[in-house]
Amino acid sequence: MVLPTLDKPVGQCLTNLRRPGGLGKDPERAQRRAEQLAAVDPDWNPGALGWTVDWQRHYTGLTLLLEGGAGLEEIVPGVTHRGDDIGRWLARQRRDWARLNTEQQHRLGEMGVKPVARPQKTATRTNTKTGATKGSDAFTRGVAALQQYIAREGTTVVSRSHVERLPDGTEHRTGVWAANQRARRDKLDAAQLSMLAALGLEWAA
């Protein structure tokens, strides 16, 4: 679709508007523009809501499938909407429910989506747990940094030189970390791949 007055693709136009300063440098004008866009679609800027454009697109696809008469039990991996595998995405949301924010959980819950019940984990030996915890903490920190970047920028593309400043004031070499995860994807476990796929990284799905 092309905006008739701007002669630009709607998707590209919205991507530009979502970027920092995309609504203009004047704060009052930017606020007015944001209000006008929200009047058309309250979810026009997913990053400000705490999720990615990719998540928003799949959520919309799920909504349309349900409105079209499909039941949740029918939306399994392989069921698509406009090329997106909504079934596989839905399975990830159920599996990674704890990683969704409150609003995401609320919206999916209103549709009847519930998290997958997880079996209780058995205790591991202390000497192996310590090493695993260190690696897990580093990975979780990287995911948090990348999630913050995606929520702000609205894209999963991050330059290798990018450094993300975390809420605690520390800096994280998110660009290098993201590149390393992709290079060593064969060594990542299923849970780690699921976390990255949930952020919209197609190579991890």
Rank of each mutant, 00 (worst) to 15 (best):
T63R: 13
T63L: 15
T63H: 10
L65P: 01
L66P: 07
E67T: 09
G68T: 08
A70G: 01
G71S: 15
G71A: 15
L72F: 15
E73N: 11
E74W: 13
I75Q: 04
I75L: 03
I75W: 12
P77S: 09
P77F: 09
G78V: 08
G78T: 12
V79N: 02
H81L: 11
G83V: 05
D84K: 12
D84S: 10
D85N: 10
I86D: 07
I86P: 05
I86A: 13
I86C: 06
R88K: 04
W89T: 06
L90Y: 01
A91Y: 06
R92T: 14
Q93R: 12
D96A: 12
W97G: 01
A98H: 15
T102N: 06
T102K: 14
T102P: 01
T102E: 14
T102Q: 13
E103K: 04
E103T: 14
Q105S: 09
Q105N: 02
H106M: 11
H106N: 09
R107H: 12
L108W: 11
G109N: 10
G109L: 10
G109Q: 14
M111L: 14
G112M: 04
K114E: 06
K114D: 03
K114C: 00
P115R: 01
P115S: 04
V116G: 00
Q120N: 09
K121Y: 01
T122S: 09
R125N: 08
T126C: 03
N127S: 14
T128R: 14
K129E: 12
K129H: 11
K129V: 08
G131I: 04
G131N: 13
A132I: 03
T133W: 11
F139M: 02
T140I: 09
R141N: 00
R141K: 03
G142L: 04
V143W: 02
A145H: 00
L146C: 02
Q147W: 03
Q147D: 10
Q148D: 07
Q148R: 15
I150A: 13
A151K: 02
R152T: 14
R152I: 03
R152D: 13
E153F: 11
T156F: 00
V157Q: 10
R160V: 14
H162Q: 04
V163I: 11
V163C: 05
E164L: 07
E164D: 05
R165E: 09
R165W: 00
D168E: 01
T170G: 03
R173F: 02
T174P: 00
T174A: 15
T174V: 14
T174I: 11
G175R: 06
V176N: 11
A178H: 13
A179C: 07
A179L: 07
N180C: 05
R182E: 14
A183S: 15
R184M: 04
R185C: 01
R185A: 05
D186F: 15
K187C: 06
L188P: 00
L188T: 01
L188Q: 00
Q192D: 07
Q192E: 07
Q192N: 01
L193R: 15
